[in-house]
Amino acid sequence: MIKVENLTKAFGPKLAVDGVSFSVERGEVLGFLGPNGAGKSTTMRMVTGFIPPTDGRVRIAGYDMEAEPIAAKRLVGYLPENAPAYADMTVWGFLNFVAELRGLVGEAKRKAVNRAVEMCFLDSVLYQSIETLSKGYLHRACFAQSILHDPPILVLDEPTDGLDPNQKHEVRTLIREMGRNKAIVFSTHILEEVDAACTRAIIIDRGRIVANGTPEELRAQSEVAGAVLLTVKGKPAAEIAQKLRELPLVRRAEAVAEKDGAAQIRAYPKPEAGDGELGARVFELAARERWTVLELRREEGRLDEVFRKITLPDTKPEKEREIGKKQ
C-alpha cells in the first residue's frame, strides 16, 4: 500500500532524511521510532505529500505522490504532529469541512462524521469551539479527521503525544484494531508503544534507517537478549557467578544486584548455545548445587536498550563537536 523508495530530503546543505526506503502492506502497523530530530516528521510529511522529496519517491497504492497527488492523497488519512485544527471552528464544523474536502456529501457525509465522532468519543464537545478544547480532545478531534473517510492508509505523527495514560491506551487500542485492515504508519518516541501497537518497527536516526524488523527481532538485538537471569537466596553473588562461568555455554556472568540476602546474576550465552539451552544448564547446576532459586528467567531483551545502542553512538560525537564549536 505504501511504498517508499530512497526518500531523501535536504534542507540547504543538511540532509534531514537520507535514502529512506520501506513499504507497508494492509494489515501492518509500522512503528516509526527515532530520537527527536531524526527525520520522522519530515518523512511523514513527504509520505503524505505535504512537502516534495529532494530525491526518491513515494507510491500510495500504486499512485505516485508527485505525479498523481490527488489520487494518492484521497487514500491517506493523516494526523500531523501537534494535531493542528482550525481554532475558530466547532468540532462538528471542522469534521464536516474535512468530509467535504474528502468528497463526501449528503448521507455519506453525515454517516462518516457520526462514525468518527463515535470512534473518538467526541460527543460531549461536538459543538464546542476547537480553541477551547483540552489537548486530549484536540488530539482526538484531529484524529477523527484522519479516519473520517475510512482511508485504507493512515499516517499518524506522534498520535499519543501529550495524552494522559488512559487516552494513550485508547489510542493504541484503536490503532491496533484499525491496523487489521489498514496500512498504518505511526511515529513515536515512546518505546512501549511499539509493543502495544506495532507489527513492525523502523528505527531512524539522523535521517537514516538503522533498524527494521518486528518488535521481537529488534529486541533480539539487545545485549541481554537470550541471557539467563538467576536469583538465588542465601549465597554470595560472587560465588554463584564463579560457578556459572565454569559452565561451558556461558560466555560471561555478572552480578546484577544483591539485596535482602538474595543475589541476582545474569549469565550470557556463547553464540553456539541453542535456544533455551543455557537455561537448562543453569537449572541443572542450581539443582546440583542445591541453591535456593527464587527466580530463573530467560531475558527477551529490551527495546530501550536496543534503541540506545543503535542511536547513541552516532549522535554523541556530533553533540560533542557542537559543544566544542560553541566554546
Binding site: K73, Y78, P80, P84, A85, V98
Partner: peptide, 14 residues
Amino acid sequence: RLGTIELLLTMPVT
C-alpha cells in the same frame, strides 16, 4: 501559524 496548512494541503485539494 496554526499548522493547519499541513492538513489542508494533504487533503485531496490542489
